[in-house]
Simulated assay, not measured.
Amino acid sequence: MTDTAAAHTKANANANANACAGATAAGGQDAEPRARFRDLVAAEWTKWWSLRSSGWALAATALAVVGFNVGMAYDTYRYWSERDTASRADFVRDGIPLSIAFSTDAAMLLMLALSSIGATVIVGEYRTGLIRTTFAAVPARRSVLAAKVCVVAAVTTVFGAVVSVASFGLTQAVLSGRDAGVALDHPGALRLVVASALLAPVSALVGLALGAVLRHSAATMTANVVVLLLLPLIFSADRHWAAVIDHALPAGAWNRLTAVGHQPVAHPWTAGGAWTVYAVWAVAAAVVAVASVQRRDQ
């Protein structure tokens, strides 16, 4: 009896051990480790640069914006002799070198191009169906969108800085040929460079948010044009209520931060308020993009 009981005890122990091992193995297969956020950022980074169009779009935008500003500077250099003595003397005092360094038309071009690039990042995935594959691999959808926001913000911030610094440096180098250029320590110069650089990520995040909500190329591009370009033209700063709306838009904030000269303004506001508008638009766009991810895509 003793030998028989010992044999049964040993058999039961072996069975329990095998069962525990099997359960551990099954649990290891079912409970896969969650993707780390830095891995999601790396994946989004790879997605961005795996498309040749991404690099070409940024390069073309940079050349267009910088070339536009340098062209204005060259026109000033070329026709400098046609200016009278008083106009030449007041050229720097009136802040004209800064208005040439990054013009309003160049800013509008930058906003439109960067918002389109930001929208393409998400709209392209919905159009091709890649977003479904991504969400199947990573169920944490909001984490995926948060990683996408980080990549878009980082890439476009660096892009904006390069374009803004290059534009300022090249335009002032051209104007210096007529002793009309200014340095970066000139009053208002650094603020213009920073404001123009940050206009890129703000515009790209707005495009990303609109693309995440609308998920259709034509509708998203139309919304980008309306929000970033048409609304600033409709709501001018002539009346108080219109000025409030204008001041709350990214274009209005850029105009305030890059204002030069001493021209009177009907409804003045502070540079701190303009920086706040930049921050609110960037944060709000990021939140909308992340929160727009539905639990199930139809």
Rank of each mutant, 00 (worst) to 15 (best):
M1F: 09
A6V: 15
A6E: 15
T9D: 15
A13G: 07
N14V: 06
A15W: 09
A17Y: 08
N18T: 15
C20L: 15
A21F: 09
G22Y: 10
G22N: 15
A23V: 12
T24P: 03
G27N: 14
G28P: 01
D30M: 10
A31M: 13
E32G: 11
E32C: 11
P33N: 12
P33H: 10
A35E: 09
F37R: 00
R38T: 11
D39P: 02
L40C: 00
V41G: 01
A42D: 12
W48E: 04
S50I: 08
R52N: 10
L58R: 01
L58W: 05
A59L: 15
T61H: 08
V65T: 09
G71K: 06
G71H: 04
T76Y: 02
R83C: 01
A86R: 11
S87P: 02
S87Y: 09
A89P: 02
D94M: 07
G95I: 05
S99G: 10
A101P: 04
S103D: 14
S103H: 15
D105P: 02
A106P: 00
A106M: 02
L109D: 07
A113I: 01
I117M: 14
T120V: 12
V121I: 11
V123M: 03
E125N: 08
T128D: 12
G129M: 06
L130Y: 12
F135M: 10
P139F: 08
P139Q: 13
A140V: 11
A140K: 03
S143P: 03
V149D: 04
V151Q: 00
V151M: 08
A154Y: 00
A166S: 15
A166Q: 02
S167Y: 04
S167I: 03
G169I: 04
Q172P: 01
V174H: 03
L175W: 00
G177A: 09
D179I: 08
A180S: 09
G181N: 06
A183N: 13
D185H: 12
L190T: 14
L192S: 05
A197S: 07
A197W: 01
L199R: 01
A200K: 02
A200S: 14
A204C: 09
G207K: 01
G207C: 05
G211N: 00
A218C: 06
A219M: 07
A219T: 13
T220A: 10
M221P: 03
M221N: 03
A223Y: 00
N224V: 15
L231F: 11
I234H: 05
F235Q: 04
D238M: 05
R239M: 11
R239A: 15
H240I: 13
W241R: 05
A243G: 09
I245P: 03
A248Y: 10
A248T: 13
L249N: 09
P250N: 08
A253R: 00
L257Q: 03
T258E: 03
V260C: 07
Q263P: 02
A266Q: 13
H267D: 10
P268L: 09
W269C: 08
A271K: 00
G272T: 14
G272R: 11
G273S: 14
W275I: 13
Y278N: 06
V280W: 03
V280I: 12
A286T: 07
A289E: 00
V290F: 13
S292I: 14
V293C: 02
D297H: 14
Q298L: 10
